[in-house]
């Protein structure tokens, strides 16, 4: 009759990890960290750039609207005055 618990402890004795296991883990860890860093960098870049891009686009829109309004008012004013002057040409 055997001592089952003792035999079981023997059967389940710790196994050596496969050769090179630790190196493979360290390599995988470096690779995963590098990937994470890349993602983090990309995410940070996007987080910084998106609002900046939006602000820049908005600024461009504002500048364009302002320039267009100035041009429109100048043309309107100039043309109105031209019409009025043709109607009442200045006496020499």
């Amino acid at each position: 009759m055997i001592d089952l618990e003792r035999e079981l402890a023997r059967a389940l004795r710790p196994q050596e990890a496969p050769a090179g296991f630790a190196e493979r883990v360290l390599r995988a860890d470096r690779s995963r960290r590098a990937r994470r860093r890349t993602w983090l960098a990309a995410a940070s870049f996007a987080l910084v750039l998106l609002p900046a891009g939006w602000a820049y686009q908005r600024h461009q829109q504002q500048q364009r609207a302002e320039a267009q309004l100035r041009l429109a008012l100048e043309v309107a004013s100039e043309r109105l005055n031209l019409a009025l002057q043709r109607l009442n040409p200045p006496t020499e």
Binding site: P14, Q15, E16, A17, F21, A22
Partner: peptide
């Protein structure tokens, strides 16, 4: 890793 690889594996 070196110390615990055998246990975990």
């Amino acid at each position: 890793v070196a110390a615990h690889q055998s246990r975990v594996f």
